[in-house]
Design a protein around this nucleic acid. Structure first.
Length: 595
RNA sequence: GGACCGGUAGCUCAGCUGGAUAGAGCAUCAGCCUUCUAAGCUGAGGGUCAUUGGUUCGAAUCCAAUCCGGUUCACCA
């Protein structure tokens, strides 16, 4: 099995320490290896401070001894230099020659891959009463990226989506359509289905508010007015009718949800969300009832005098939690437990990742605990990938104040701005019309995805429209541009990937820096996937593009000193392009051949 | 009040299980296109890493306390 270079250095350094100090019992885990800081000579650094005391050695003397041993015994190293307790090692050019000649991206990924597990990633999970907004975009992009990364890291991934298609909020838009819809359809209105339905949800709230005001003017308390408003009463009745399966209600429900799905399909297609399995809450909301009985039998749950069923989680630092109402109906958490079991039954998953906002941290803590206490299979594999809210520079998005950023609008706007900026830069020559369309999509959508993915998931983030449309600096565009430039150079250089007739005499510092970073890709990907953190991949990709740009500026490929050097540089460039393309594809971002 | 999360440059963010003089991008300023795509490159300024104490050879990172901001603790989903 091929190890990353850093791993190899670690293994060899440990071996050297063990050989020199057999009595000290030094283990690999005790040895820290870092990339050498640019201001020092060397590629990788072994930190020796931890051993200085135990070995009773002067740090510099220790470094020199270990360094000399490594250079003498291993061809991998050509030089060493110790600065205080840091042993800086230089990696042999031969290593890089071998790397360039034999490196295969997919093999490197395979070599790093962990034992395959079956992992389900649940994300997106919309309500069918309103269209997707900016917050959903962060969710979708995270879900797509994490699923891709896990798959690339060797896991067997199932992507799923749980659609909240029932409940009182769905009935609200249905009632509003009955009252104000005049039998209209999205087609007639010329509005996308999900927006069409969402508009009626808004209408419900407007009318509800109006009726409350009216009732309060008649002397009623606000709380009571909310319940007593005729439109709310009708909604409650509709929910009862829905649960009873009343045909005309079911028919209306199906019709309106159908409109929403048509709308969602368009959005999902645009942003690249796909699912292997979709669960509908209308099918799953009754799940988990039998588990309540099971929990009672096992003594995990207990019943109060009124018949309601609870679990006591105070010993785990949480509260008492209701799992079944006194009237026998189940609550939110119950169906989630049921669905967790259902997923496990259907797919035999080892891990279940839930991409859900951090306002549900408590809920998922409870869910996992209950599943564990019930002894359900794969309960330990439940993981809540919690992400922070997306806020605007002006503060939180509030539907009441109309500051919610609509997903469709935003995507369209980003693509439009990509077009505007591309045209302004005068780089549209030599493109077919349809090529330009896909280029604008790549740039606009890529910028948006990168912008939302570059922040660590658990942190809340600020969406600054001004900044998000900037196509310079730490952006997907920067990386796409680097990729396009490389492809262009390779086309001109007629790179085939076949000419391996080069050796490496001396590498420029820019070449070494690029190679070192390139080599780290598989390890970075593995670590990012393990941490469910696409942001780490954003950082890596940007750094790689940055290193390439410097290399590109300092080391001409077309005007290389020799043909061999030209071939070598083209190969480095090609690996860079492949790696950038691969990394961005995991983030759900495409790269152009030219731009 | 309890639990959890965040607080790093003017702004947005990196900083892995503690390691060298804390890094990017944006913004500001100064350079670089008769030479492979300038959506690029080079350089400059900009920091009491919220505060205080502790652990140690070494702390932005670990521990404790405090201050600020957020989320949550529904017989809602």
């Amino acid at each position: 099995m091929m190890k990353s270079l850093a791993e190899q250095v670690k293994v060899l350094a440990t071996g050297a320490l063990q050989s020199l100090f057999p009595e000290a019992n030094i283990q690999e885990k005790d040895v820290l290896v870092n990339e050498t800081k640019p201001e020092f000579k060397g590629d990788y650094t072994v930190v020796l401070f931890p051993f200085v005391k135990a070995l009773r050695q002067n740090p510099v003397a220790l470094g020199n001894a270990v360094g000399a041993y490594l250079v003498e015994h291993h061809e991998l190293f050509t030089a060493h230099e110790t600065v205080s307790g840091f042993l800086n090692l230089s990696v042999a050019d031969d290593y890089w020659a071998g790397f360039l000649k034999s490196y295969v991206l997919t093999d490197a990924l395979k070599a790093q891959a962990a034992a395959q597990k079956k992992v389900m990633v649940e994300y997106s999970s919309p309500n069918t009463n309103k269209p997707l907004h900016l917050g959903h975009l962060r969710n979708n992009f995270l879900g797509i990226a994490v699923a891709n990364m896990l798959e690339a890291a060797g896991e067997d991934v199932v992507k799923t989506c749980v659609v909240n298609d029932r409940g009182v909020h769905i009935c609200k838009s249905m009632i509003a359509w009955q009252l104000f819809g005049e039998n209209s359809t999205p087609e007639q209105a010329g509005v996308k289905g999900d927006h069409f339905v969402g508009d009626f949800y808004v209408k419900f709230n407007d009318e509800h508010k109006r009726q409350i005001k009216e009732l309060m003017a008649g002397g009623m308390e606000e709380k009571q007015a909310e319940q007593e408003a005729p439109i709310m009463k009708a909604t409650q009745q509709m929910l009862v009718d829905w649960e009873a399966g009343k045909p005309e209600v079911i028919e209306l429900w199906k019709k309106m949800n159908g409109w929403v799905y048509e709308g969602f399909d368009i959005t999902y297609k645009a942003i690249g969300s796909t699912f292997d399995k979709v669960y509908y809450e209308s099918n799953t909301y009754l799940l988990g009832k039998d588990l309540v009985e099971e929990g009672l039998a096992k003594g995990v749950f207990y019943q109060k005098e009124d018949g309601s069923v609870w679990i006591d989680l105070t010993a785990d630092g949480l509260d008492e939690k209701l799992v079944r109402r006194k009237d026998g109906t189940s609550v939110y958490i119950t169906q989630d437990i049921g669905l967790a079991v259902e997923k496990q039954k259907e797919y035999g998953i080892d891990e279940s990742i839930y991409v859900v906002g951090d306002e549900q941290n408590y809920h998922f803590k409870v869910l996992k605990l209950i599943c564990q206490k019930l002894g359900l299979p794969a309960a330990d594999g439940i993981y809540h990938l919690s992400y922070g809210m997306v806020e605007l520079p002006t503060g939180k998005m509030k539907s009441r104040e109309g500051t919610v950023v609509d997903a469709d609008d935003l995507v369209a706007e980003m693509v439009r701005l990509a077009q505007e900026q591309t045209e302004a830069s005068g780089k549209t020559d030599g493109f077919e019309a349809d090529e330009l369309v896909s280029l604008y999509e790549m740039i606009g959508l890529g910028a948006l995805k990168f912008y939302l993915l570059r922040v660590e998931p658990k942190k809340k983030m600020i969406f600054n429209p001004e900044e998000s449309i900037d196509l310079h600096g730490f952006t997907a565009t920067f990386i796409q541009y680097a990729h396009a430039r490389i492809r262009s150079v390779l086309r001109k250089g007629e790179y085939t990937g076949q000419d391996l007739n080069f050796s490496i005499d001396s590498l420029q510092s820019e070449e070494r820096a690029l190679l070192i970073h390139l080599e780290q890709y598989a390890a970075v990907l593995q670590e990012s996937a393990r941490a469910f953190n696409p942001g780490a991949l954003c950082n890596y990709s940007f750094k790689l593009a940055q290193l390439f740009n410097t290399f590109y500026d300092k080391c001409s490929i077309a005007k290389a000193d020799t043909e061999a050097q030209k071939q070598m540089r083209m190969r480095m460039a090609a690996f860079t392009a492949d790696t950038l393309k691969h990394a961005l594809s995991l983030l759900g971002i495409n790269v152009p051949e030219k731009m």
